[in-house]
Design a protein around this nucleic acid. Sequence first.
DNA 1: CCACAACCGGATATTCCTGATCCGGTTGCG
DNA 2: CGCAACCGGATCAGGAATATCCGGTTGTGG
Lengths: 216, 216
Amino acid sequence: MPQADRALRKDAALNRERLLEAARELFAERGLSVTLNDIAHHAGVGVGTAYRRFSNKEEVIDALFEDQLVQLAAVAEECLAAPEAWAGLVSFLERSLEWQFGNLGLNELMNDASLGDERVADARRRIAPLIEQLVQRARDEGVVRPDLDQSDLIFVQLGLSAIMRASREIAPDLYRRYLSLFLDGIRAHRSGASILPAPALSAADTHRAMTRARAR
Amino acid sequence: MPQADRALRKDAALNRERLLEAARELFAERGLSVTLNDIAHHAGVGVGTAYRRFSNKEEVIDALFEDQLVQLAAVAEECLAAPEAWAGLVSFLERSLEWQFGNLGLNELMNDASLGDERVADARRRIAPLIEQLVQRARDEGVVRPDLDQSDLIFVQLGLSAIMRASREIAPDLYRRYLSLFLDGIRAHRSGASILPAPALSAADTHRAMTRARAR
DNA sequence: CCACAACCGGATATTCCTGATCCGGTTGCG
DNA sequence: CGCAACCGGATCAGGAATATCCGGTTGTGG
């Protein structure tokens, strides 16, 4: 009878690492819909091996993303410590979205709480109050409109995510344009308009982006 | 041998109407992913009957939505004729989104050009230049920021759609709040901030909305 | 160095969906 | 009244995702 918590045999341990690495890559590129079979092949390993190490996909997601969400919480705290509330708020949105841009899986995880398991939900709960504070502080300093709510940041990220997914391959930083527009909308006062960080898409590119909006 | 374009037998004609009506309802409620089988059952009709009338789902979509897109084009023209460019622009966005709110299928059709067939694509192409004109006129009157582009309206609708879908059951008009924020972002000048038409969601409701974001 | 538990790979089974056809029985209509 | 047109739903085809099984291989403790 094998010892219960016996260390993996070294070939097994190596394969486990390969699987996690492959999963990291595939989730980032193609989102959470990839299969354990996909991951196995991308890792150059048999499907059986994948199922021996992880009983299902949830377990892999869990292993990979929990600490990513924790890191995001760290970013939020960092932004909360910024000297000016406005700069902190902007920086948080920028970095959060940038992160989600580079990692489709993380994006899906953040915008659909039905995915991932309890541990991921915990991390999410840890981030929520930080966002609340970011907004509160900006309101106190009078740099954002007084009716701005914490939930606004959540929903705006949801909207920007949709834009990002549609345009990511055609104009990777188009979403920044709309983030900028949103920021101009939540400022307490502005006389002119800020300079938008990305040019608008041509009609043809717009059509291309919309055509593959939901393609998988 | 039956006459080529012979009128349907009256029971057949009745069933065809029932099918179209059922399709209208289901597409509006549950989007374009519903099955011809679903539609048949909802119409109280056998699956075979459905396939006898329409060779596939595309054909039903085509029959139902082409004129909806045409009507939307009419709305755009109407807004183009408004005395003030700003009011026209706002009105167009409001009405377009309102329409999409009441009809999930139309929403999907507008935000994913890969769906629907050629005739629907035509209708879409007819709307594009009208949007261009709406934006052009607003720029000419100096009421919107000069760097606003026609494609911005498209992408913003895409983003607002995502918000709408997430919150539609919990707070049906939450999306208006974000439309308002966006409008404040594209105005040429504003001193204070407009009054938002819908209150923000509580933290609990926000979580509920995100949880069922992609649920089907 | 040897025996065996642990491990490997991938063919294969299972489940679930969607799309589409077939066919025995029924019905409107000329 | 007779039959072409129609009806309903059981049924088949195809595909995707999940999960298991098993004959062959390999690392490791004794």
